[in-house]
Design a protein around this nucleic acid. Structure first.
Lengths: 197, 197
DNA sequence: CCCCTTGTTTTACGATCGTAAAACAGCAAG
DNA sequence: CTTGCTGTTTTACGATCGTAAAACAAGGGG
């Protein structure tokens, strides 16, 4: 039996393939399915290659969280940039974007839940989580300030908005039959109305 | 080396010990830490005993979800029973109880997140989840109806309330330094105000 | 006092895990 | 055509996983 052939790829391409495969495995099988062998098979690569690009499976999972987090943040920022320039429209755009493509993707949401489940047990993931959510919340706080919310109220209101969005994400992912992304966006909008007084 | 001694316990006691140990392991180590050997060690029992009370590890995890779910539901119902009889007070009691003892327990919330991460991959857990959340939502819908919410609006508003509560739970568990349970309860109350119009 | 039931422990097995290290193959440079 | 670098695969190892089945011990009924 001869050794399998392979094509040489640029480093960043393989790295990204592994990250994407990791996200996919986390999405449809949870943490238990994101094994070295399963991820590499999903990426169409032999198991040994993982440690050529990452320090280990934990490092790959962390890199995946970072990548997915940056992708989400970029999508949110893009939504704000494309929105009407009025403060309220900008805030709405930021929040509602969570329920539109490319963020409202079942696989992405499932991956996100897997990351949540790792925060308490994995220190590196915990640090990453604090970083990602800090940035997310900072974005909301800035938009709240634009809308005339008192500086002392921004922190808690940003938490409250993040909580509703995460909760709706969660239910949209775990029980997608009970409501639609449009209804989720509608509820989020209503929450903004309530918080802006 | 002689065989270790042991004391004979009533079946339900050992069963409950294993369930509690499973919840504890899920809480502080996530799904990865909830192995047969780790759980049995936590329960002070030899590894082989698990299969005397459960069909396997998956069965134990499911039983743990069911038990924890029932405990939460009982606490919520108790809070409503102790509340003022006016409809709005009863609804508030149901929602705010999520941020008071015994529900607002870090270990319980961490366990809950672990269950979320299993829903998509494990059919039995998914069925259980639908059951538990169905009951939870039904409780809110009944209280909303008491408060004069139109039948057609109850479903979506119950989803919205559940989402905010879950989102606040999540952040309270993953980033407990950013806000307090009291602030969470305050936000939930405000959400009720907004939804009741 | 002995036996019988059964809760409990022990031991063993095959599968799979993450990782290390060696063997190989593609491709550019000489 | 050959050489050297390195991306990639293969193989191997020790650890740990869930489970099956046998060995044992505790306590009650004859």
């Amino acid at each position: 039996m001869s050794r399998a052939t392979f094509t040489r790829e640029e480093a960043d391409s393989r790295r990204q393939d592994l990250i994407d495969a990791c996200a996919r495995k986390l999405a449809d099988g949870g943490v238990a399915a994101a094994t070295v062998r399963a991820i590499c098979a999903e990426a169409g690569v032999s198991p040994g290659l993982l440690r050529h690009y990452f320090a280990g499976i934990d490092d790959l999972v962390a890199a995946t969280y970072r990548t997915v987090g940056e992708r989400v943040k970029a999508a949110l920022d893009a939504a704000v940039a494309q929105a009407d320039h009025r403060p309220r429209a900008r805030l709405s755009a930021y929040v509602v974007a969570s329920f539109r493509a490319p963020i409202a993707d079942p696989a992405l949401l499932a991956t996100w839940i897997a990351f949540w489940s790792l925060v308490k047990a994995n220190a590196a993931i915990a640090h990453l989580h604090a970083d990602i959510y800090g940035g997310y919340r900072a974005g909301i706080e800035a938009l709240l300030a634009e809308n005339g919310v008192a500086p002392g109220d921004c922190r808690l209101k940003a938490v409250a908005i993040t909580a509703l969005v995460d909760g709706l994400w969660l239910e949209l992912c775990l029980a997608p039959d009970t409501f639609t992304p449009d209804e989720a966006a509608e509820m989020a909008e209503r929450w903004l109305d309530a918080l802006l007084g």
